[in-house]
Design a protein around this nucleic acid. Structure first.
Lengths: 137, 137
DNA sequence: ATAAACCTTCCTCTAAGTGGAAGGTCAAGG
DNA sequence: CCTTGACCTTCCACTTAGAGGAAGGTTTAT
């Protein structure tokens, strides 16, 4: 039985986060001491680590909740886990695509900008008027 | 002088967003009608459009505030604008890199998973124990 | 006159925590 | 015995960038 700071160290998470995961019912401490301190067991630490790792893999708290349920279910079909993972990959692909386009456009803009002390700047120009007729003021 | 919904249409932003930009002092309406309605001028619309475009380019509200100051400053040096843009590009590159690594790892995991009704799943295994010794429970 | 459409302010909610204040607990040292 | 410091508790506010909705005032059209 570890108090929260020890549990946090072992799970490699901030204390505040561990407390928060208890508050939202994601990972509850096994019990409380007489004085009200949260007490965590090794299985609790494992769950905390699991969530920490899943979070680092950019799974949302809700997805973590699902995964944790699966994690605890000895009968889980691996197809469900795979499904969640594939959805996450698709999400990442879409985000990658967006970011790539954005990056290219900004790169182009920056390349066009002479970057000196003259006040005219193609970046401002582009942001001011994206080919439409409302960019003057 | 346009009322808020007209201004929102012209700036291609939701009404709520236009009101919000006023609340946070980013783009204030030029004035108010006798009955208290916000009234926007063409220059206001141009500023709203500018912010909308910058936001779509993933500049933060604070960066928009900076850009708007530059936008309004006839003496702005383009070097400052270029600097902000280059910082944004670096930020995006870093995020792209992270996402790429994440994607590859999840892809690998998904590829290892047979995805059927058997309960053992390498994804869960990997999340449970990332090479450390606290993954059992 | 009244109904629809529009406007206002104010309040709550989002995700996933972080930061801090006020106060209780515990072990060590003087 | 007392105090100091580290640790713990709960509760509250703050973060991003708005979205959603309630209650009520205004304008426009029929």
């Amino acid at each position: 039985m570890y108090k929260i700071s020890e549990a946090a160290i072992r799970a490699n998470l901030p204390v505040k986060t561990v407390r928060y995961y208890g508050d939202i019912g994601l990972v509850n401490p096994a019990g409380r001491s007489d004085s009200g301190y949260r007490l965590y067991t090794d299985p609790d630490i494992a769950k905390l680590s699991f969530v920490g790792r899943a979070r680092r893999y950019s799974f949302s708290i809700d997805q973590c909740r699902e995964l944790l349920d699966l994690y605890e279910d000895e009968q889980r079909p691996s197809s469900v886990v795979k499904q969640i993972t594939l959805e996450k990959i698709a999400e990442i692909d879409s985000r990658l695509h967006e970011l790539q386009e954005l990056r290219d456009e900004l790169q182009h803009l920056a390349g066009c900008c002479h970057g000196d002390s003259r006040p005219d700047c193609p970046i401002i120009g582009k942001l001011s008027n994206d080919g439409l007729e409302n960019g003057s003021f």
